[in-house]
Write a protein that binds this DNA or RNA. Structure first.
Lengths: 156, 156
DNA sequence: GCAGCGTAGTTTCCTTGGAAACCCGATGTC
DNA sequence: GACATCGGGTTTCCAAGGAAACTACGCTGC
């Protein structure tokens, strides 16, 4: 599987930890996505809803940070949510320029239900592990984030 | 951060293992992608090249499996590679119908160089861990794959 | 022999997201 | 007071990938 026809060693894809991380992560996300789309919601929309729910009156820039997407893409997510009647661009009364975003009643009602879907998905994939194992994976990931000072960035 | 204004508990995004997996994995892939695009190659193109390198004369269906994309998308990847002069659709002489895909000389020359980029990227993110730690993460991921019988699926 | 099928690939259409241009109101600066 | 500038947001354009329609062929059943 390594060197072939040339003398140069070429490690297989599966030799990389990154490969496996991506592999598992893609599955977890893909399943979550399939569940969400039964309610006609995408993952970014879910993250946006969840953010607005925790912190009402978030402004656009805040959402950009939470979503880890460009402001253009974020703007489109908000438009979609508005279209679905889940959130609103509330041109802030206070006149400081920035626009505030808020959930509608429907949006607020939806979040806890989606949260249960998210919980269930995580449980599906990791529920069979012991609490200790889960925690150790969590720690490993968070350590990587810390070590590399990873910030939320555009998600591809 | 949990229940707010309603009585329903809503766990934070960061409570999910899936969240952290995705977070780290996205960063790893994103960095790799940035490195590759300096050579005008995308991640799927890299995987395709790597596959054809290891197994010359792969046919389209095989590539579909390796890439974990739909056949339509795979077809476009091949077209791109052909356009860049890295691979070719070789209408197989044996007449069994299926078309064989092969790397050009340029393609064959490129793979080992890209492989070094891939290695470097993995080392960048995980090189500071001990061999034991790396292995244990790798094992954890592979155990998940096995437990859930995960197959390669469309990659987002 | 040929009608109907199934398999392998390609093409078309649509959605999502990044990049960059653009828009607009608030804030200096002279 | 007129104008350059800047920050926050939106719009436009493009690339990539999924879904499904379509194409080309070889094979089976009659």
């Amino acid at each position: 599987m390594a060197a072939r026809s040339s003398g140069t060693p070429v490690s297989p894809l599966e030799a990389h930890l990154g490969f496996w991380l991506r592999f598992v992560s893609n599955h977890v996300s893909a399943r979550f996505q399939r569940q969400l789309e039964q309610r006609d919601i995408s993952i970014s929309e879910w993250v946006a809803l969840r953010t607005l729910w925790a912190q009402p009156e978030t402004r656009h820039a805040g959402l950009v940070r939470a979503l880890g997407m460009t402001k253009g893409a974020t703007s489109k997510v908000v438009s979609r949510l508005e279209h679905k009647g889940l959130a609103q661009r509330a041109s802030t009364g206070n006149g400081t320029g920035g626009q505030a975003l808020v959930l509608t009643a429907a949006g607020r009602a939806l979040v806890p239900r989606l949260a249960r879907v998210a919980d269930a998905n995580d449980a599906h994939f990791f529920g069979h592990l012991s609490a200790k194992q889960r925690q150790s994976l969590m720690d490993a990931m968070q350590a990587l984030v810390k070590h590399h000072r990873l910030q939320q960035v555009p998600t591809t």
